[in-house]
């Protein structure tokens, strides 16, 4: 038997012995980004399909508004992660085509007006608002009266959401030095996972049974798709090269395997999917438990991918 011993004298903080440049902030940011992307797509869809006239859908106002809050939280998490915070404004002095981080900065800027205007289309009753904002209501009515415009706004949000969702995956997959991330299906995984989390979220908070049912069905679709995309992602990496196969091993049999199998696959996808299938078939009641599991699973997925990805490496200098 021959052995291979590699000794390095380098000991840089956050880099050695294993990379740990990103803590909780980036997974949270990616998760919230995916969630908000889902909000944009689903709310946009409701808008596009003309359902915004039906006031019972939470998707019409509360979802975009919640999205605005969540994306702000996400950006704040990202900001917390920056090491050179005083220079954050530098993001907006340039557009770097090759840098997904740069697109992301600009996408986030566009997400705000898109969601804000979508929220405006269906404002709740005056009595639910703390202050009277007459001009907003006028604006809202005016938007609703132009159905074509409203549908366009819906379409823009669907598109913007899709881009945002994809971006959260591309951000990682563009960093080719981390084999676990260098997959062409990571954007799809994060997009689908974002959609399923959003569906679960709306499922949970929707006031009417019909909406809950609708979203639960949608969620089941997204979760099934997510399982498929996950399989695609893992198989794709495992068959790329031994470096990538090593990286996948981190998830399926390595350090991160317990979390991956139990929380991401089990708690996050398979169990809630099973419960929700029973629920939509009226075998069990709709509860908040499966959607909470899906949301938690989505968050944990981002954590696992971000953490394991940092440990995946081209050389085995870090003792994979």
């Amino acid at each position: 038997m021959t052995t291979h011993e590699i000794t390095t004298t380098r000991m840089n903080p956050m880099i050695d012995p294993g990379m740990h440049i990103w803590g909780w902030e980036i997974p949270v940011y990616l998760f919230l980004g995916g969630l908000v992307a889902g909000f944009m797509v689903i709310s946009g869809y409701f808008l596009f399909s003309g359902r915004f006239q039906e006031s019972r859908h939470v998707t019409c106002f509360r979802a975009p508004l919640t999205g605005l809050i969540l994306i702000s939280l996400g950006m704040f998490a990202l900001f917390l992660d920056l090491e050179h915070k005083l220079y954050a404004w530098r993001l907006y002095t340039t557009i770097k085509i090759a840098s997904p981080m740069s697109w992301g900065a600009w996408i986030l800027v566009l997400v705000y007006p898109a969601m804000a205007i979508m929220a405006l289309i269906h404002l709740p009753d005056q009595k639910h608002l703390p202050i009277r904002v007459e001009f907003l209501h006028k604006l809202s009515q005016s938007l609703r009266s132009h159905e074509g415009l409203a549908k366009t706004i819906g379409a823009i949000n669907m598109l913007g959401g899709a881009i945002l969702g994809m971006y959260t995956g591309v951000l990682l997959s563009s960093l080719g030095a981390r084999p676990l991330w260098s997959s062409s299906s990571l954007w799809l995984l994060f997009l689908v996972s974002g959609m399923s989390a959003t569906a679960a979220f709306i499922h949970m908070v929707a006031p009417t049974k019909a909406e809950r049912e609708l979203l639960a069905k949608a969620d089941n679709g997204f979760l099934s798709l997510e399982l498929f995309v996950l399989a695609l992602y893992l198989i794709g990496l495992a068959t790329t090269s031994d470096v990538h196969a090593d990286a996948v091993r981190l998830l399926i049999s390595g350090t991160y395997a317990p979390v991956f199998w139990i929380f991401v696959i089990g708690v996050g996808i398979v169990i809630p999917l099973g419960i929700q299938i029973l629920a939509v078939n009226h075998k069990v009641k709709h509860t908040s438990i499966p959607p909470l599991m899906v949301i938690a699973g989505g968050l944990i997925l981002r954590f696992v991918i971000v953490m394991a990805g940092q440990h995946s490496h081209w050389s085995n200098a870090h003792g994979l």
Binding site: I21, H84, Y87, R90, L91, M101
Partner: peptide
């Protein structure tokens, strides 16, 4: 240094792990 926001994407992108964050943030 004065353009760097410390996002660390470059650290993650380097297959050699040749970069680090200076204590001053860049």
């Amino acid at each position: 240094h004065n353009k760097c926001i410390g996002c660390k994407a470059c650290l993650a992108s380097c297959p050699y792990d040749a970069r680090f964050i200076h204590p001053d943030g860049y």
